[in-house]
């Protein structure tokens, strides 16, 4: 054991150079990608671990779903059969949504309104929906998220 040591010493000193080399390359890669990654993390909230929905004080909320293509779905009317984002909902246009929301708010001003935006949907589309809802008289909306462990499974 003791005889081995003197032989090892010179070798270990040489090895530091590739090590630093790799480190620097990695540093450059991280520096280049970091700004891009930061923005993604900030905005892509839909799979977020936040407070679960309080046990609904009021039942029968209005749920506006925005799917990945930016199409709107409402939990009203004849349910659409089959799978997909609109399962159990009906498709509406933005003008239609404004109309329906106004009618509902006229009769039930305290209705809870939820927006279920797809993680891939543009922020602008969500804002557009929210502004339409606001004009209809909605005071505040709930942005629906899914708990992370479901989020990966649910994808969408």
């Amino acid at each position: 054991m003791r005889r081995d040591r003197p032989r090892r010493r010179p070798v270990s000193e040489i090895n530091v150079v590739p090590y630093i080399d790799v480190m620097l390359v990695l540093l450059v890669i991280f520096m280049a990608t970091a700004p891009l990654l930061m923005q993604g993390v900030e905005v892509a909230l839909p799979a977020a671990d936040n407070a679960p929905l309080k046990k609904a004080e009021e039942s029968d909320p209005l749920v506006v779903t925005i799917d990945a293509e930016g199409q709107l779905w409402l939990n009203l009317g004849m349910p659409t059969a089959g799978e997909g984002p609109g399962r159990g909902a009906t498709r509406v246009s933005l003008g239609n949504l404004a109309d329906q929301a106004t009618k509902i708010l006229n009769t039930r001003p305290t209705i809870p309104v939820f927006v279920r935006g797809d993680a891939a949907v543009a922020y602008g589309a969500v804002i557009e929906v929210m502004s339409v809802l606001q004009k209809a008289g909605v005071r505040g909306v709930g942005l629906v998220t899914e708990p992370p462990e479901l989020g990966s499974a649910g994808g969408r």
């Binding site: 029968d60 009769t107 209705i111």
Partner: peptide
Amino acid sequence: LYVRDWRVQGI
């Protein structure tokens, strides 16, 4: 008649 059209308005 779709029940939820009316439930959502509390009718």
